[in-house]
Write a protein that binds this DNA or RNA. Structure first.
Lengths: 131, 131
DNA sequence: CAAAATGATACTAAGATGGTATCATTTAGA
DNA sequence: TCTAAATGATACCATCTTAGTATCATTTTG
């Protein structure tokens, strides 16, 4: 099981490669820094732009820049964009109910695990990865 | 993100539907109890048989039975059969390395999360779901 | 106006997931 | 011994997700 898809992975690489210097970085620069295939990276950058994580500038001399300080971009928010909300217990014992209970006893346990995972991921920021 | 695939889900339903009474249960019985499509359930039962979780008996009056007490069948072992080993950090920042470090700072954090998740899953047994 | 950059959007290949279908084998019992 | 009821083995298939490509439009600077 993967915690992060490749989209997310690439997005994180891109975001942390932008740094907090405030300089513009082009997609080509980011391709060199991250090793991500260009068309795919461009698509990811466009999504990050729409979601407000980066600000983009067209034309010669243009590029991308973080629109927030790296320390205020949470990993879990980036994940959510590309993977949807973290729901570990999705689909579990769906319509069926456990044989001996009205509510699934496993759900509670999985919920507890999920809460922990989310809380840990909340604490990870882009900034904390490049510091 | 799903913690468990449908295979695993169905396998757990089947195992916990067998109970610990020691009686034989046929695939047809389990279909009724679990709502899983029969051919798929049969495939899953065969895998559980090969892996030693259930013992099977052919012919009229045959069926399946847990080969271990429910309390000694761990959820994480069932997961491993159908989903492979739990590796949350698989593929993460694969060949690439984070810009400012030789080792990926995220890997450590994900490893920590993974350890917790595994430890929690280790504690969940089939028996604990139907008790 | 041209070149360099991003924006928008449609398309595609491969693998994983969630099944189905078929035939072989074993066993109990009339 | 024949038959029905059960599992064993195996091959096949449809859909969805993932990971990516391709193309053209738009904006901006010089």
């Amino acid at each position: 099981m993967k915690l992060l898809t490749r989209d997310t992975d690439y997005a994180i690489r891109a975001l942390s490669s932008m740094g907090s210097s405030g300089e513009l970085v082009t997609a080509d620069d980011l391709v060199k820094k991250t090793g991500v295939p260009k068309p795919f990276l461009r698509k990811i950058l466009q999504i990050l732009g729409k979601k407000g994580f980066v600000k983009s500038y067209k034309g010669i001399g243009g590029g991308f820049r973080l629109s927030l300080p790296g320390n205020s971009i949470k990993l879990v928010d980036v994940m959510e964009i590309f993977q949807g909300p973290l729901k570990l217990n999705e689909c579990f014992f769906k319509k069926m109910v456990c044989p001996n209970r009205a509510t699934c006893p496993l759900k509670k346990k999985v919920d507890k695990i999920e809460k922990y995972v989310v809380s840990q991921l909340e604490a990870i920021t882009i900034g904390s990865l490049s510091a």
